[in-house]
Design a binder for these strands. Structure first.
Length: 862
RNA sequence: GCCGGCGUGGCGAAAUGGCAGACGCAAGGGACUUAAAAUCCCUUAUCUCGAGAGGGAUGUGCGGGUUCGAGUCCCGCCGCCGGCACCA
């Protein structure tokens, strides 16, 4: 293909337009504080998930989402919006650090080189970013404010009454360190020896690190945590107003994992205390025949009777040595041991045995459960194995009492009618829940509560290439640095390899470590998520030096359409991959809410509308991967077919959100289409160059040409609004096919087409617009700076419409009718159509249904 | 196992409950050309009747249902993809 004659000389003009756009700052967005700011224009903030600039370079998956947002950005500018369309780099991260360790080069060097390459690649596709706003999360001017936000978290607490974050000074309790949104805790964490760092739960997949697939073990370590659990409720509730895919909202809801239930106190008679359990089925309390606590529960050894001690300790040891993967092995049989202790079931005073078992997790609820084997599958399995009593207390509503008598061979976990349950007998499950919770509360034995699966966010990493914490330690106590001391940069180090122990690499920087005679710096760094948690805010005002973003810029760009509801606002359109459905999007929402609570932001949600682009598969319908050798490099596509073809193809492949395979033949198809657009305006000269076509003439568009033109304006406009780019392109193909063979050819067609095409294929549109302007009037300025033209409905009207004639729903014939034909006329002409008459075959017609402009359905009597 | 999403020609796909397959790819035929490339035109869901012109039947994963009318709505399955995974 490369050797073939080019359809159009894209390589002669694509780079030209790219450098003109840069030189002219053509896509510069003005802030309210700028002198040339136009306050009459509405704003539109359209954002991409900024890339990690890896050594691999840009991927076709990046191009997909970035092209979609670029079309929107260019379109909105033409519709008269003040458009913010920025790009930057999420450049802290493990790959750069690991590459640096391997090669001995400083991560800053490789990071800068990768950024150069990414920027050049993005510019070679003609994206209309405001490059004056570019920054990297690794810039000290940026991470200074990342650290500043950390200090805000550190110096705040969540007031459960007001349900929002407040400055720590408003906390009246004894120890502020217990409630800070950023805190230090000794807890079991995911330690990855191969990477030499701890990882967040979210970064561990199947017991292995998400990056690199190295084994991860659990070990207790002292770590920085962020109290995201305080926001669990709001993070769920405030999803409601967002224009996000329902599936993504659901993923977040499930991740946060809200469960309504009750905390119930079980007295341990041999000791002075009670153990509390969380249950979602308090209505089954009468069926609780034993109790299980997690092997890691702090009270285990205290309650264990002397004769059971050896067994219990052995079991704890066994469980402790297991990896997460082994422990959660699904097919695994239930294990556990009896502690020798008993608990009292508060509803009936029964003494029930207290076991430990690894199916009860310390991290969820209270780390203790009441076991109701008749109505919980796990408890059932456990009870069967260890011969514990199974007592039925809920009866399936549609079964008779006798049928429920014999011990069932499976747990019944659905709703039903309470039986064998004293005061609850006869009540349906939902009512039984309410009644028993009220009873527990009256008797001080428990209370209704809501529990969340979400855990606090493990926020420290043992890495070099990340934001250092603005924290110093003095005699074992942490304290915050003053804001004036920011940024805290990493020290220059020769050796930033992991230490092989949980000691972070920064601990090797002796001079840097020493803050003062008494105080030493915190040596952990922040995770990569930190930088991406607020970059969309910085884009509003990337050079702000007095504040993380100036208030006027923030309130302008993040404002919502509906002034009545502060929540509705933020980025107007955010496009990226589903892989960030829970992590980045949850973390960013959390930070945003904290900053909102503290009064720094004007909206409580960062991203009003979210769209996920689908994955692009290799030509073999498999996920692209180096090992499969099916990776398509966008650079090669640009060389062979040009940037416009790449953009257009990725939008033409299918619906944006759908997964779809790559096809080079498909690229050639849109490339040929662009060739036809080119030849609409240009003809080849004797010398093999191109000149404005002599076939072009100032002639009036015919009625049918006007109809196609306005149908195209309408379709393209509507389809851009609904992100249905594939069908917008189809319509422009129809338009082009209509005009390409006309001689003479009305130049007016190009005046309509080129601006429509310019958001999709900006280079060719600008080039043709400019060259046509040398011969014809009406091509002033640039294609991309024309006002977006709207269609005129009157041109779409047709004189005569063809109707399908159905008999009993089957098309038998077709008739033509005047546009304004009456229903009676339509019916008459349909009944008279020869094929229809044949199908009717003299049978009586019971009714006739007319769908204006479409069809007539003749329904025969049965 | 639970929760989502998706099943339409040879392929990517299109279709406010209203004539299924627009647009593109591939394939076949033709025009132009010394020839090729490029370009342009025609055909192309499946089966079937017909010499032909032109008909007929079937068809949106499978089985039911609602409706004058279902790819689209409802119920029950099957398959693929994604997420969660002992969360009490």
């Amino acid at each position: 293909m490369a050797s073939q004659r080019k359809q159009f000389p894209f390589s002669d003009f694509e780079a030209k337009w790219q450098s003109r756009w840069l030189a002219d700052q053509a896509f510069r967005a003005r802030n309210p504080a700028d002198t040339d700011f136009d306050s009459a224009k509405p704003k539109f903030y359209v954002l991409d998930m900024f890339p990690y600039p890896s050594g691999e370079g840009l991927h076709v998956g990046h191009v997909e989402g970035y092209t979609a947002t670029d079309i929107i950005a260019r379109y909105k500018r033409m519709r008269g919006f003040n458009v913010l369309h920025p790009m930057g780099w999420d450049a802290f991260g493990l790959p750069a650090e690991q590459f640096a360790i391997k090669t001995g080069q400083h991560p800053r060097v490789t990071t800068e080189r990768n950024i150069e390459r990414f920027r050049a690649q993005l510019q070679s596709i003609g994206f209309s970013y405001d490059w004056a706003r570019e920054f990297s999360t690794t810039d000290p001017d940026y991470f200074r404010w990342t650290q500043w936000i950390f200090l805000k978290l550190y110096n705040s607490w969540f007031n459960p009454i007001a349900r929002r974050a407040e400055p720590i000074e408003t906390y009246t309790g004894e120890d502020a360190d217990e409630v800070r949104l950023a805190y230090v805790a000794e807890m079991p964490v995911n330690w990855c020896p191969a990477l030499g760092t701890v990882l967040a739960n979210e970064e561990v997949v199947d017991g292995k690190s998400e990056v690199g697939g190295h084994p991860v073990e659990r070990r207790p370590m002292r770590q920085w945590m962020l109290r995201i659990t305080a926001y669990a409720e709001r993070l769920i509730d405030e999803l409601d107003g967002l224009d996000w895919p329902e599936g993504i909202k659901l993923l977040q809801r499930n991740w946060i994992g809200r469960s309504e239930g009750a905390l119930v106190k079980f007295e341990i008679p041999d000791f002075k205390f009670e153990i509390e359990v969380f249950t979602t089925r308090p209505d089954t309390l009468f069926g609780a025949t034993y109790m299980v606590i997690s092997p890691e529960h702090p009270l285990v050894l205290e309650i264990t009777s002397p004769d059971r001690r050896a067994d219990v300790e052995a079991y704890q040891k066994e469980v402790g040595s297991q990896s997460d993967l082994e422990r959660t092995e699904l097919s695994k049989e239930k294990t556990g041991v009896f502690t020798g202790a008993f608990a009292i079931n508060p509803v009936n005073g029964e003494k029930i045995p207290l076991w430990i078992a690894d199916y009860v997790l310390m991290g969820y609820g209270t780390g203790a459960i009441m076991a109701v084997p008749a109505h919980d599958e796990r408890d059932f399995e456990f009870a069967k194995k260890f011969g514990l009593e199974i007592r039925q207390v809920v009866q399936e509503s549609n079964k008779s009492a006798d049928a429920a008598e014999p011990s069932p061979d499976a747990a019944f976990t659905g709703d039903g009618i309470a039986i064998n349950s004293g005061l609850l007998d006869g009540l349906p499950t939902p009512e039984a829940k309410i009644k028993i919770v009220a009873w527990l509360e009256q008797n001080g034995l428990g209370r209704g509560t809501i529990n969340y699966k979400l855990r606090d966010w493990l926020f420290s990493r043992q890495r070099y290439w990340g934001e250092p914490f603005p924290i110093v330690w003095t005699q074992g106590r942490h304290s915050a640095l003053d804001e004036a001391e920011l940024p805290v940069a990493q020290p220059e180090m020769e050796d930033f390899k992991p230490t092989g122990t949980p000691e972070p690499p920064l601990s090797k920087a002796r001079d840097w470590l020493t803050y003062s005679e008494q105080a030493q710096r915190e040596t952990n760094t922040m995770p990569q998520w930190a930088g991406s948690c607020w970059y969309y805010l910085r884009f509003c005002d990337p050079r702000a030096s007095e504040r993380f973003v100036s208030a006027d810029a923030e309130s302008y760009w993040m404002a919502g359409r509906a002034k009545s509801d502060a929540r509705r606002g933020g980025v107007d359109l955010y496009v990226g991959g589903t892989e960030h459905a829970v992590l980045h999007l949850l973390y960013a929402r959390f930070w945003h809410k904290v900053l909102y609570d503290l009064g720094y932001l004007s909206t409580s949600e960062p991203f009003q509308r979210l769209v996920n682009q689908g994955i692009i598969l290799g030509p073999d319908n498999q996920k692209m991967s180096k090992s499969r050798g099916n990776v398509v490099n966008p650079e090669n596509v640009i060389v062979e077919y040009g940037a416009d073809s790449l953009r257009l193809y990725e939008m033409f492949m299918g619906p944006l959100e759908q997964m779809k395979p790559w096809s080079m033949k498909g690229v050639e198809g849109v490339y040929r289409f662009l060739g036809r657009v080119w030849r609409l305006a240009m003809s080849e000269t004797q010398e093999g160059g191109w000149a404005v076509s002599p076939d072009l003439a100032e002639i009036e568009l015919t009625g049918s040409q006007l109809r196609v033109a306005h149908a195209t304006i309408k379709k393209v406009t509507e389809d851009i609004e609904s992100l249905a780019f594939n069908t917008a392109i189809s319509q422009m193909m129809i338009f082009t096919n209509e005009f390409v063979n006309l001689r003479p050819r009305p130049v007016a067609g190009l005046r309509i087409l080129l601006p429509l095409l310019s958001p999709f294929a900006p280079h060719i549109s600008e080039e043709l617009w400019e060259r046509l302007g040398e011969r014809f009037p009406g091509f002033e300025g640039r294609a991309s700076s024309q006002e977006w033209r709207l269609h005129d409905e009157s041109f779409l009207a047709v004189e005569e419409v063809e109707y399908g004639v159905q008999v009993n729903g089957k098309v038998r014939d077709r008739v033509r009718a005047r546009k304004d034909a009456s229903d009676a006329e339509l019916e008459e002409s349909a009944l008279g159509a020869p094929k229809a008459r044949e199908a009717i075959a003299g049978k009586p017609v019971s009714k006739v249904i007319i769908v204006r402009g479409k069809l007539v359905n003749i329904v025969l009597a049965k």
